[in-house]
């Protein structure tokens, strides 16, 4: 069967390996994320999902393998360089700047991608180039009314939204979302799912998520990780019927 010509993957990891002492956290893992898709990575606890995100974002150096992003080899680039090229991430544990207001948080994220910050004179809190888009961004994620509230005083779900607003503010070509629903209540999770669905129209996303309902509702493709190895990769429908996946992972989960 003739395959239609597809664009090159936006993010492509090949043969990634990461060892911590004797433990192989990422074991010869390959993964490709196509532009415009939501690619979910699932796997039982300890499968190496967060390690993978850390390798892709550049926090962890891989022992072997290559990572290409937007056609460039980024394997040896530091975190901030990958971020500047458009690879943004959110954190599993909310890590907004707690003493800053929601607006200041987003303004700081915008500032990161607005040339350099060796600017010592002008008051950043009155800089329309930062404040105006920051406000718009907060409106977009539904935090418009909370702009002046310190991040520490936002509800947990709001902090998660802020976290994503900050990732978006960097004008990314791709988002790495590490369990965006972690610790959320049912209602908050439903709202976040709806929000991610709207994001899907404009962003390419690599999503790590525990909540199977969310993953199967959102993902275009799913990669299943077990002990640092990708045991399967395919559409939700394919993953649902994959025997190996059922044995290794979904078997223990009533949802599936």
């Amino acid at each position: 069967m003739a395959e239609p010509l597809v664009e090159a993957p936006l993010l492509e990891a090949r043969g990634l390996i990461k060892r911590f002492g004797g433990i192989v956290a990422t074991d010869n893992l390959s993964l490709a994320v196509e532009p415009g898709e939501i690619h979910a990575v699932i796997g039982p606890n300890g499968a190496g999902k967060t390690t993978l995100i850390a390798q892709l974002s550049g926090e962890l150096r891989s022992d072997a393998g290559t990572i290409r992003f937007a056609g460039e080899d980024v394997t040896d680039l530091p975190v901030y360089d990958r971020s500047r090229r458009g690879l943004a991430r959110s954190f599993q544990i909310t890590s907004v700047f707690r003493a800053f207001t929601a607006l200041e948080n987003v303004a700081l994220a915008l500032q990161a991608h607005d040339s350099h910050s060796f600017r010592f004179w002008k008051d950043a809190s009155r800089d329309p180039a930062l404040v105006e888009p920051a406000r718009r961004m907060l409106e977009q994620v539904g935090l418009g009314a909370r702009a002046e509230i310190a991040a520490a005083e936002l509800a947990h779900g709001e902090q998660r939204q802020l976290e994503i607003a900050m990732a978006l503010a960097t004008g990314p070509r791709m988002l790495l979302l590490d369990e965006p629903m972690a610790g959320m209540g049912r209602d908050e999770a439903v709202r976040m799912t709806a929000f991610l669905r709207t994001l899907k129209q404009s962003e390419t996303i690599l999503l790590i998520e525990h909540d199977m309902d969310v993953v199967f509702a959102l993902a275009d493709r799913i990669t299943v990780l077990v002990y640092g190895r990708a045991i399967a990769s395919g559409t939700p429908a394919e993953i649902r019927v994959n025997q190996e996946v059922r044995q290794a992972y979904l078997g223990e989960d009533e949802h599936a």
Partner: peptide, 8 residues
């Protein structure tokens, strides 16, 4: 977080 935002 600053590094993840793109700050060296």
């Amino acid at each position: 977080r600053m590094r993840a935002l793109g700050f060296p």
